[in-house]
Design a protein around this nucleic acid. Structure first.
Lengths: 205, 205, 205, 205
DNA sequence: AATGAATGAGGTTTCATTCAT
DNA sequence: AATGAATGAAACCTCATTCAT
């Protein structure tokens, strides 16, 4: 069997992915309400009805898009916390190293903005987002900061109580994604380094 | 003319405001696409046609809502920068003092989230928002930080290049509006104070 | 006010009736599923959306059609039972006299056939039909027959236990409506008279 | 060839019958329009496409269902008329004896109701039904009644002109099938006997 | 100026039918 | 012959907008 030959189920899988891909683009460009199933189908190169073979309805497709796109983000962030380092600063720097490539991927910001945009209409999705992304990340970052405070790494030990202070620039950077030059930020990595320099007492090597 | 007697144009003005008020509530609750003119009219206590006597169409009404709600925010922030203080820290603290009441107003976060949510569909609005809110604020904050760096107020002088680092927690706090307790923040003012303590070298009196 | 001038609500009422009228014709001609709202609207001389100003959805319109058309039938039959007569035979003859004009009205059979046809899809309707039409009529007819049996009017006294035997030809005649000539019946009244002659002992005057 | 081994065409025939069987159940339960080919296929244990190997389209399948189910009914009724008896009453009683088992079969009423229900949509079917079932039966019954009138068997000789009067309770009983208890009929055979007692002069032995 | 009935374009969803495997 | 994924026509219903009253 030649490598270009696909089994029926492989082709079905490819089609499903093509639909999710097309739906991502359309939802990001127009939002949920203004996106037409017909346009998604056309972009995916399938007929309108085919969309409904793979997804129960428009909402289901939207939620699939968001969850599919979220998975690698969640996985990347989670993995970043796993690796052990001597100092908290090093851990956070390493986290940045894995997170920054996500930032250069325009899709990432697109999908996060989409979640924010449509959170009114999709409370379930917001719940998923809080439970799976915000919650665990805040908890882990809080743990890290407590460790940093205990080790005397923080310039302002009280900051250990507010993980939000640490991640706020990163979150804004992700969501603003590629539009930060408009507020004068050209080098995101430099900005975040500066941020860490303020937070942590020790200079990085 | 008794004070309860309203001239025709005063009554018209009141009606217009009632419509904007009702529209704000509906748009915030449902988003642009899912809000029905009929519901806005019902909430405002007028007939559907009356909405069209005051606004060209649904978009126009939406933009009016956003701009109307934005004005006091812009004005408040602008005013905060006007007053002179000895140190930059004092200026920023004063800014916080005027800004924080805005945060306790739930409407503020609602309207900002609405702008973010619908920015895809309303590029004009996003432009307005950038031009009128983001841009001037970033510029002014940048100026302040440069002054602080020159005066040796900053723990990390390089932070002067990134006004975003200073305002990021505030922006997130506004947008998350009343849901920060979910990430463990119960006292926003305390969090922001801690943030400033990290930024500025001198302790506040 | 000239007699051709109609108030707004009168015109609305007329429109509603026009829609019911058009819907009756379309549902009778095509059945529920094959009738298109657009065709009903066109026949009534209104726009599609106008139908939905008067009826929640297609089912609601259908049920309104059936109930509207049923009312005069139910009323006529009910009234026929009210009047007192010396003999049961006279009562039944009088009933026929009021019921037969309903038979010559083709709409009557149409609507009854429609109820039968769509009873699968509209259990509620079938319930209404049984409760409001079949049940009361069977009960009243049963009472009449008991009286007839006691007075010795029946050729076969046991027939008093089966009101269905009395009304069966009438029901079939109504439902077959205008197609009975196909089974050789040209004079329905004569057929029903013959039926009664068999049931009742006394000859009619 | 063992008896459990089926030739290819026998298997095909079995499949076709399974489809008709499944289609009968679905059409009876939901009516023509609301029945989905997919559900018929699933119930028959075949794929959707297989239905189209056996029937041109949905209408064709429906007509096949009706005609297939009609055949035994027509045959049974026809056979009932063939046997010779001394009196017409005996003939009719014998007819009842063969017809009543059909009544206890719920399918019979189901399929007749289906024909009535969908007669609007299937004029051809109605024609078939009239030509093959109603017409011959009315004619034969008419002949019988003429004979009975000539032999002085009828209490009301004029009834010979209206075979409908004789069969009406039977037809209603079939169509109402199993729901007659709702109008107080618990013993259909007793009801029909009473009916015949009224029609025929001589008592049955 | 205010009303709200009427309009009809537009979008989602269903499902009979086809056809490549 | 059998399958079931794919198609796309068709129909319901919504709601922004208009306009006669």
């Amino acid at each position: 069997m030649s490598p270009t030959r696909l089994t029926r189920s492989e082709k079905a899988q490819e089609r499903r992915e093509a639909i999710v891909e097309a739906a991502t683009a359309e939802f990001v460009a127009n939002g949920f309400a203004a996106t037409r199933i017909e346009d998604i189908a056309a972009r995916a190169g399938v007929a309108k009805g085919t969309v409904y073979l793979n997804f129960a309805d428009k909402r289901d497709l939207f939620e699939s898009v968001v969850k599919t796109r979220m998975l690698p983000i969640v996985a990347t962030i989670g993995a970043g916390f796993e690796r052990a380092h001597d100092t908290v600063r090093e851990t956070v720097e390493a986290l940045l190293d894995v997170a920054l490539p996500l930032l250069s991927e325009p899709r990432t910001g697109d999908i996060l903005r989409l979640v924010v945009s449509e959170s009114i209409r999709f409370p379930d999705l917001t719940g998923f987002y809080r439970r799976e992304v915000i919650g665990p990340t805040a908890a882990r970052m809080g743990g890290l900061l407590k460790r940093a405070a205990a080790a005397g790494e923080l310039t302002t030990p009280a900051a250990a109580d507010y993980p939000l202070l640490v991640v706020a620039p990163l979150i804004l950077a992700i969501v603003a994604n590629g539009r930060l030059q408009e507020v004068g930020v050209t080098d995101m990595r430099a900005m975040l380094r500066t941020h860490l320099d303020g937070l942590f007492a020790g200079r990085r090597s």
